[in-house]
Amino acid sequence: MIKLLALTVLFLLTFLLLFSQNLSAQTTPEPPPLSMNEDNLQTKTKEISQTLRCAVCQSESIWESNATLAIQMRDIIRERLLAGETGDEIRAYFVSRYGDYIVFKPRFRGINMLLWGGPFILLAIGMAVLLRKLKKWTARPEKEKPEPLAPIDETQRQRIEDELSSLK
């Protein structure tokens, strides 16, 4: 059982290590744009807008929405890109104003870690329980040893011998 628990913990640690590396790779600051012509400004605005939730709409990004607030947010993204800010800096600005709600992909920190890791933790627990049960089900049953007989006294022994001799 201890081995099983150790394996589960190892699995979780590996997962968290890989995942955090993956996330840190995602959050590595992008280099500032060297030149921003209208085409790549529009592409970059679209890319960032698609990751931000329209605060006054139902499950729409600010790129898809035509709400005034979404349009104004797109304008702000554009202005900030022109000012040399990166996508991550712009997203961080909106999160600082509206909270994690504004991004479609919650950040890997605080209670959000539970959101990201929760399903995997539950999966690991489920696997550990299942493995334990399987181990029990597939284990060979030990050969039943006969229970040691209680010692018999002289009278009983004599009676058995008499009965055996009467059978001959």
């Binding site: 005034t68 104004q72 304008d75 702000i76 104003r97």
Partner: peptide, 13 residues
């Protein structure tokens, strides 16, 4: 007019 202040203050409506 441009919503710069309201977005800076995290205003929804």
């Amino acid at each position: 007019m441009k919503g710069i202040i309201s977005i800076d203050y995290g205003v929804y409506g």
